[in-house]
Design a protein around this nucleic acid. Structure first.
Lengths: 229, 229
DNA sequence: TGACTTAATTATGAATTCAAAATTACGTTG
DNA sequence: CAACGTAATTTTGAATTCATAATTAAGTCA
């Protein structure tokens, strides 16, 4: 069953398209952390030759999603404690900035959109629907980021978020942490509505710090009780 | 086709080496902003085929140093006002973080090294030696960055710095701005020695903001009096 | 059997080739 | 001569090919 015709890529820049697709595969763990990137099989799957695929791998490597070992191929990077301790502070600083800028530039309509998302998120929290919660959560953070009106900031933030996403998405929040996160989001909305950039920045920073602790804890648990995907 | 021997590349990963070399060419303006990247001539110059060169171009494009136009090749990006307004705030936030972390992690010996550099910088200021000043200036910022002990932060900062470097390096500081910058550096050293992370962060942020203004002014002057390179 | 060599296979890195697109050069016509 | 259209050339994007390094398999000998 060679159905690569259906999946064959034609749009704009091939390597760029491949970067997107590979990112998706990595975030969704279809390409599992620590495993080798199956160059040949991906070429078959996407119906492309090795040249554009390898171009995409170089880009992903510079973003830290994969690691290139000379003459030994590409490997999906693991989310390590060390990396988490590095990335979250940086992400915190960037999100804080995005909050500050968003307070200056966000339209009232956009704030209203965030309020709607916020309420949807509360609902999914009530339902204990973690998937929905994460999805809406991301939309809120993204809305704030976009409202900062700074493409460079957006790019930098997203690149780092991507690296954490696998880890964060699967982080089985405790009931306590989940409640805490919701409380933090109440404050985020409050300060956004008040256009209080300073306090929003501080809150987003603390929010990220709490996430860091949560993810670290999850990584440590996983280490002690490995195996179950 | 031969004679590539003189500059031929042999070290580790070819595309990685090419990324480095091309960055250097771009920063030094040997590849001038706004011009087309001469793929063929670079291949000849480096003695490599197009494949690894194009891999490097993809990476540089994702870092924003060049722009890829589908079917039309690669172009060295211009430093625009818009971009400066975007990048400097982000860089400011990151340098502020680096200052905060550096105060926690820097060894006394490392602080001493910064002091030495600082004094050298003052000397080059007295001599009005702009090249030396910039070079030492960069070393100081880099020392602080490395002392933050955060590889992710280092990478992010440097990527953004690179994009600004062409513009900043050529920024013909006014006497007034130069004096101001030196004063700012006095404070930076002071707070570093005191390990006052909060104030160091604030100072670095202001320092970057002042640089932004300076570069913007330079860009505007350049626009009104173009041509002279 | 098990450690060590050596040969076969496979995967990787980079050059080359090839089709398609864009650019340039040329010629025509008004 | 200028504007347009067509042909030749060059450049680009991507597949293919090729040399080399790494991995696996097979064979040898204690």
């Amino acid at each position: 069953m060679t159905m690569q015709a259906s999946q064959a890529i034609t749009r704009k820049s091939l390597h760029h398209e491949l970067v997107d697709r590979l990112q998706t595969l990595i975030i969704s763990s279809e390409l599992a952390p620590g495993t080798k990137v199956p160059e040949k099989s991906l070429c078959d799957q996407f119906g492309v030759s090795r040249t554009p695929l390898r171009e995409a791998l170089k880009v992903l490597a510079s973003d830290g999603l994969i690691r290139l070992e000379p003459n030994r191929g590409a490997w999906v990077t693991q989310v390590t404690e060390e990396e988490v301790e590095e990335v979250f502070p940086v992400l915190g600083a960037l999100e804080a900035l995005s909050g500050e800028l968003a307070c200056r530039h966000m339209t009232d309509a956009e704030i209203e959109e965030v309020r709607v998302l916020h309420n949807q998120m509360l609902e999914s929290y009530e339902r204990r629907d973690l998937d929905a919660y994460f999805s809406i959560n991301q939309k809120i953070h993204r809305a704030i980021l976009l409202a900062a009106r700074n493409a460079t900031l957006t790019t930098s933030c997203q690149a780092l978020s991507l690296r954490m996403q696998r880890a964060r998405y699967l982080a089985n929040m405790t009931e306590g942490r989940w409640y805490q996160a919701v409380q933090e989001h109440e404050k985020i909305l409050k300060y956004l509505v008040a256009r209080d950039g300073q306090n929003l920045a501080t809150t987003l920073l603390k929010h990220m710090e709490a996430k860091r602790v949560s993810v670290i804890r999850w990584l440590q648990d996983k280490e002690n009780a490995p195996g179950s995907s």
